[in-house]
């Protein structure tokens, strides 16, 4: 069996595009499909993913190729509207002839590569990483959630959150940080932020405003607007790119909370 990445549509009448292919790549985006990393417009490269021979343009990531091949690779910090970042360590795969478990989002495809996206070892590794994220996510916001983060939980078998006897339970969390509701249209709840930087990168790469940064280090890292101002007072132009990019409901439309946004009292998961 063989699959190919759909060729970017509407490229008729192009000329002299060498080195500046990003516009055709943007046209490779598809609704309802997250390729994980941006579509590329290079020469075809053929590799094998879980036994399926797959052809994608050169410059594509292994994550993209896996998605095209029909594999489901869990991920958090990667999305196809943003350049790869490689921070969440959830999209790990095995590649024949390579040591360890490289992140599929930051690994470019090579001709003849043989990739395995599943298996017990990978599942355990991914679950371990996601458990860490989960330890800092409000427990009451797991059930009924429909964000990308919740989908990832499902993919790694953590739909019910952390088990009651899990060693991570009772750890530190971010629920003492106030919700920023200054923007009339969206809010930022730091308790649900997994610091994947998708919002920061969307503000830079897509919108070009550079209003968001990650301030602080380690567990203290958090998303900050301008010089740690409220979203409304900051340079944010409210384009919504960060909200669109956020996988975990930390940045989210207020219109989805008709009765207002009220945090539950319970602790973390």
């Amino acid at each position: 069996m063989s699959t190919t990445n759909p060729a970017p549509a509407g490229t008729a009448g192009t000329a002299g595009t060498a080195g500046k292919q990003v516009w055709t790549e943007l046209r490779g985006l598809r609704e309802g499909v997250d390729l994980g990393t941006p579509p590329r417009d290079g020469e075809p490269v053929t590799l094998t993913i879980d036994g399926v021979e797959t052809t994608v343009p050169a410059g594509s990531s292994v994550l993209l190729a896996a998605t095209v091949a029909g594999a489901t690779v869990p991920k958090l910090c990667a999305t196809d509207t943003l350049e790869c970042f490689g921070s969440c360590r959830v999209c790990l795969v095995e590649i024949e002839g390579r040591r360890g478990y490289p992140a599929s989002c930051t690994t470019p495809v090579e001709s003849g590569m043989t990739v395995r996206t599943g298996g017990e070892r990978l599942t355990a590794l991914r679950r371990g990483v996601v458990e860490l994220y989960l330890s800092d996510y409000p427990a009451s916001d797991i059930e009924g959630g429909w964000s990308e983060f919740h989908t990832t939980l499902e993919q790694v078998g953590l739909t019910d959150g952390l088990p009651a006897d899990h060693p991570y339970r009772g750890g530190d969390h971010h629920q003492h940080l106030a919700v920023d509701e200054s923007n009339p249209y969206f809010l930022f709840d730091p308790a649900k932020c997994i610091v994947c930087s998708r919002c920061v990168r969307a503000c830079q790469e897509i919108q070009g405003t550079f209003a968001l940064t990650i301030s602080g280090r380690g567990f203290g890292s958090k998303v900050a607007a301008s010089q740690d101002e409220s979203f409304l007072a900051s340079e944010c132009v409210s384009c919504g790119a960060c909200v669109q990019a956020c996988p975990s409901d930390a940045l989210i439309e207020k219109s989805l909370f008709p009765g207002g946004y009220h945090r539950a009292d319970s602790g973390q998961a």
Partner: peptide, 26 residues
Amino acid sequence: VVRMVPWKEGKANHGHSCVKGRFAFD
């Protein structure tokens, strides 16, 4: 209408939006 979400296949916006179209629909 509870929200307007930019369409990734929109050839003018490729999934991007601004404050008016994204939020000011009420």
